[in-house]
């Protein structure tokens, strides 16, 4: 029983990081119909911004994180939106998908070429200790990851539902034309979505890298899991993406521990196929209108 609890808790912790990536993915999807195939690399890159500041510039830890956050907002938010997505709107379609794939190659190769191909240890301000919860042992880091992610997503949900800007962002995403008429600055709201995505990705990067090390290829599996989480939860729901992320994290851990190690990666995929075929709108999503 205590092993089970432990497996679930550490699954929740990993899942919460997936959720951050998935929520950002869903936001960008809503705001600009962009399926970002570089989302995994978006989570991989900010850790290297921090490493550059810390090791190359010799900055302290907190300054490194601040620098990484700003660089992410500028490059993964502003530049990505302005240089790649914006010119291809309103309907980017497949060329936009291809462009994001190329962005993913670009980011990966840049890190490999300019920083290095080996996995890099990544500093964490948190202590290494563990805690006992109901017989289960969980590391402080894991617990922090889970609580911090939940707090961030919770805060984001409040922002979207309760503030004027948040509601304008939702309106702009749902029906840009109507929002425009009602005086919403749709272009600005779309930009906000990209900035929030960049911030979420940077945050996820800081959380995931101390445990899994920073490596140029980290994004490959992360991106796929983020898609899966977003779709399982419901493309058009922030809360859905959160639940999807946690679900995938926990299931993945359970399968690996109790069923099969070789096919642990298969379960989320089977779940994905099942959800898409039986409930395309996701577990928590709303059905989209049909046209005959």
């Amino acid at each position: 029983m205590s092993q089970f609890l432990q497996v679930v808790l550490s699954g929740l912790s990993t899942g919460s990081i997936y959720a951050l990536a998935a929520v950002g993915f869903a936001l960008v999807w809503q705001a600009a119909q962009t399926v970002n195939f570089a989302q995994g690399e978006f989570v991989m890159l900010p850790a290297f911004f921090a490493l550059v500041a810390i090791h190359w510039f010799g900055w302290p830890l907190w300054a490194g994180f601040a620098f990484a956050m700003l660089a992410s907002l500028a490059i993964l938010g502003l530049a990505f939106k302005g240089l790649v997505v914006q010119p291809m709107m309103p309907d980017g379609g497949l060329p936009l998908v291809i462009a994001t794939m190329a962005v993913s190659i670009l980011l990966k190769e840049s890190v490999k070429t300019f920083y290095g191909a080996e996995a890099q240890p990544f500093p964490s301000p948190l202590p290494d200790g563990t805690l006992q919860i109901g017989g289960a042992v969980i590391s402080i880091r894991d617990l922090f990851d889970l609580l911090a992610s939940l707090a961030v997503v919770g805060g984001l949900t409040l922002f979207l539902d309760r503030t004027r800007t948040g509601r304008q962002m939702q309106a702009a995403a749902q029906s840009p034309a109507v929002a425009e008429i009602l005086g919403v600055d749709v272009a600005r709201m779309t930009l906000y979505a990209f900035l929030v995505n960049a911030a979420l990705a940077a945050f996820a990067s800081f959380l995931v890298s101390p445990t899994y090390l920073a490596k140029f290829s980290n994004g490959e599996s992360l991106g796929l899991v983020a898609f899966i989480a977003a779709i399982v939860g419901g493309f058009n729901r922030i809360r859905g993406a959160l639940v999807g992320g946690l679900l995938v994290g926990v299931l993945d851990n359970l399968v690996a521990t109790y069923v099969t190690q070789e096919y642990r990666a298969a379960l989320p995929l089977v779940l994905l196929i099942a959800v898409i075929l039986w409930r395309p709108q996701g577990l928590l999503g709303d059905a989209e209108g049909r046209t005959v």
Binding site: L83, V84, P87, M88, G92, G93, P95, L96, I98, A99, M101, A102, V103, I105, L106, E109, S110, T113
Partner: peptide, 22 residues
């Protein structure tokens, strides 16, 4: 060149942004 995959990726992005019909 050492940067071939980077150049290649930039080329693909530019092509898709400027000429989506390939």
């Amino acid at each position: 060149t050492r940067y071939y995959l980077i150049v290649y990726a930039l080329f693909v992005i530019a092509l898709m942004v400027l000429k989506p019909t390939g």
